[in-house]
Simulated assay, not measured.
Amino acid sequence: MTSTPPAWTTTPITADIVRGALDLEHTGGGILPHRLPARIRARHADGQLAMAESQPSGIRLVFRTRATAVELDTLPTKRVYTGVPPRPDGVYDLLVDGRPAGRATASGGNTLTIDMATGTAEHAAGPASTLRFTGLSADDKTVEIWLPHNETTELLALRTDAPVAPAPADGRRTWLHHGSSISHGSDAASPTTTWPALAAARGGVELVNLGFGGSALLDPFIARTMRDTPADLISVKIGINLVNADLMRLRAFTPAVHGFLDTIRDGHPATPLLVVSPILCPLHEDTPGPTAYDFSRLGEGRLLFTATGDPAERDAGKLTLNVIRDELRRVVAQRAADDPNLYHLDGRDLYGEEDHRELPLPDRLHPDAAAHRRIGERFAAHAFAAGGPFADGEG
């Protein structure tokens, strides 16, 4: 006996059902969510940042429906690194009324092949994919589809077997966060299990994640973006990328931090603002950058990182993680005298020496899925608990 196919309703993918994005680019075939506004992308066309901001970490479709089946057509762009085992397909997480209800991946898609030795990249077009979530209850419910945190994803069509309506925010506060690849979600298992997503779920807040792999560099345009983005809570995680890139010395770092925070405060003068220093990373605790690829274990399918700086150069102002932590602590203490809603958190309280012994960084730089969960739980316990900087009613 052949079952009757559902009568599908196609819903336009518009800003009222997309959360966590700062811009929706209309392409020839659909919508490409971005985590930076178009004016910023046009003016600051760095390749690494362009790739990172187009990966929809924290971006999700959210809607109310009685549908028992949901289909989403997507066109992913998958990264392939020459000489490195293929990366797994990006994961889409389904939540129903805030609880995990399914998981899918999209095959096919475009391919971006990157040669790390030469710094070149080649793009090849590929086919779209259809994700299907079925067997949902017919009750009225809130459905969330979290897009892959590490895979650029063009949204082509949303179909359901019952009408869709935008979901109300229910008075939840918005948390705006900026950080590096760790905040972006590097090596997390899925988009809802990056540490910011886990912390946001525990804190009961709406996440806008401006964690950009390799690109937390105190750029003024990021500060201006945060200044102009509505938020009830703000955090910035500063440090590791500045060491990775060997971008500046201590003399430049201190005024850059002040300037970054000043710009945020121009738009959010009294919003709780938490400055987070780097988690433990033995590679760069006392050794400056730049960071380089270590190909010595590539035959085993492992790409590692190594520090190439000289610890003796700290006296000349080169940055290490310990130098950055000390200076961030001093800067926040100095500013807090006039800014009662400014707070500091030592990143080693999220992931420190004991954690590294138990859950070492697999590539020497990024935490694994278990460490992401631990960091998210600890951040939530610090920030959202009673008396914390993000406690409801504080600030």
Score class of each variant (00 low, 15 high):
S190H: 06
T174C: 13
R60Y: 06
E354M: 13
A42W: 07
D16T: 14
G301R: 12
G185V: 08
A333C: 02
L365Q: 03
R330H: 05
V143I: 15
P85R: 02
S3E: 15
G289A: 10
W195K: 03
P255V: 07
A101N: 09
S137K: 00
T254N: 04
W175A: 11
N241M: 00
L94V: 09
E25L: 13
G388R: 04
L233E: 04
L304E: 04
P100V: 12
D232G: 14
A52S: 14
A370W: 08
L158C: 10
P37L: 07
E300C: 11
L342F: 06
T9V: 15
A369N: 04
A316G: 09
L176H: 00
V62K: 12
H382D: 08
G317I: 15
A69D: 14
D161Q: 01
V276A: 02
A167E: 05
N150H: 12
L250V: 14
V91M: 10
T142F: 04
M226A: 10
P168K: 01
F260R: 07
R64H: 15
L32Q: 14
M116P: 07
P76T: 10
R35L: 00
T193A: 06
N244C: 12
L36D: 02
L319T: 04
R314H: 04
G213H: 10
T263F: 02
R357Y: 06
R159Q: 06
L94S: 11
L218E: 05
G299Y: 01
P196T: 14
L283N: 08
A15V: 15
V275N: 08
Y343T: 08
R364E: 04
D23W: 09
S190Q: 03
Y92L: 00
R314G: 06
P230Q: 01
F63S: 06
D266C: 09
L365G: 03
R41A: 13
S107W: 12
D262K: 13
A67Y: 08
D339A: 07
R60S: 03
P5K: 09
V164L: 07
I13D: 09
D266V: 02
L49R: 10
E206F: 04
P360C: 11
A381H: 01
R330N: 13
L210S: 04
D338I: 01
F390W: 09
E25P: 01
G289N: 05
S180L: 06
H258W: 02
W195M: 15
M116F: 12
L176M: 00
P168M: 03
A256H: 02
A169H: 03
E71A: 03
D97C: 03
D16L: 05
R364T: 14
G352N: 06
A316D: 14
A21H: 02
T320R: 10
A162Y: 05
A128C: 15
G83W: 08
I238L: 13
A199D: 07
R335N: 04
A270R: 11
I375H: 12
T160K: 02
D93K: 05
R348C: 12
N110Y: 02
L61Y: 12
T254H: 05
T27V: 13
L321E: 01
D246V: 09
H372P: 04
D349S: 15
R249Q: 01
D338L: 15
P282W: 11
G204L: 15
